[in-house]
Simulated assay, not measured.
Amino acid sequence: MSAVLYDVPGPRARLRNRILNVVVIVAVVAVVIWLVLRLNDNGQFAARRWAQFEYKAIQKELLTGLLNTLRAAGAATVLALIFGAVFAAARISDHKWVRVPATLVVELFRAIPLLILMFFFYYGSLQYHLGLTPFHAVVFGLTLYNGSVLAEIFRAGISAVPKGQREAAYAMGLRKNQVVRLILLPQAVRAMLPAIVSQLVVLLKDTALGFIITYNELLYVAKQMGGRLEFGFPYIPTYMVVAVIYIGLCSLLSLLARYLEARTRRNRKIAPGTTVTAAPLDDGGAA
Rank of each mutant, 00 (worst) to 15 (best):
T103N: 12
W50Y: 12
R166H: 08
I92L: 09
N40R: 10
A156S: 13
L39H: 09
N68D: 02
W34H: 02
A90E: 11
Q44K: 05
D94G: 12
T69I: 04
Q127M: 14
A137R: 08
T69R: 01
R71M: 11
R166A: 12
P134Y: 02
R91A: 03
L70K: 02
I116K: 09
A137T: 13
F154Q: 03
A102Y: 11
I92N: 12
V106A: 02
A46Q: 01
Y55L: 14
R91Y: 03
Q59D: 12
Q127W: 11
F53C: 10
W34D: 09
V138F: 04
L37A: 15
H129W: 08
F140H: 04
G141T: 04
R71L: 08
E61G: 06
Y128N: 14
V98N: 06
L62D: 09
E152G: 05
A72G: 07
A89S: 13
Y128F: 15
L132K: 00
Q44M: 08
Y145F: 15
N40K: 08
N68E: 00
G141V: 05
L142G: 06
I116F: 13
G74I: 10
A111D: 12
G84C: 02
G131V: 05
V138S: 04
T103L: 13
R155D: 04
A75H: 00
R38G: 05
A57F: 15
F135S: 06
D94L: 05
R38T: 08
I82G: 13
L35S: 14
R48I: 13
E152S: 10
V78P: 09
I82Y: 09
K56M: 10
G147S: 06
F140E: 00
A156G: 15
F140K: 00
T133Y: 07
A89P: 01
H95E: 09
S148L: 07
L132T: 11
R91N: 05
T103F: 12
D94F: 03
Y128R: 12
E107R: 02
I158L: 14
T64I: 15
E61K: 11
I153F: 03
A160C: 01
I158C: 01
S125Y: 01
F135P: 01
F87H: 04
L132D: 01
I58D: 11
Q165N: 08
R49A: 06
F109H: 00
L114Q: 06
N68C: 02
L114D: 03
E107T: 04
A51L: 11
G147Y: 00
N42H: 12
R49K: 14
F121K: 00
A151M: 07
S159I: 12
R38L: 11
T64V: 14
W97S: 15
T143H: 12
I153A: 03
G124N: 14
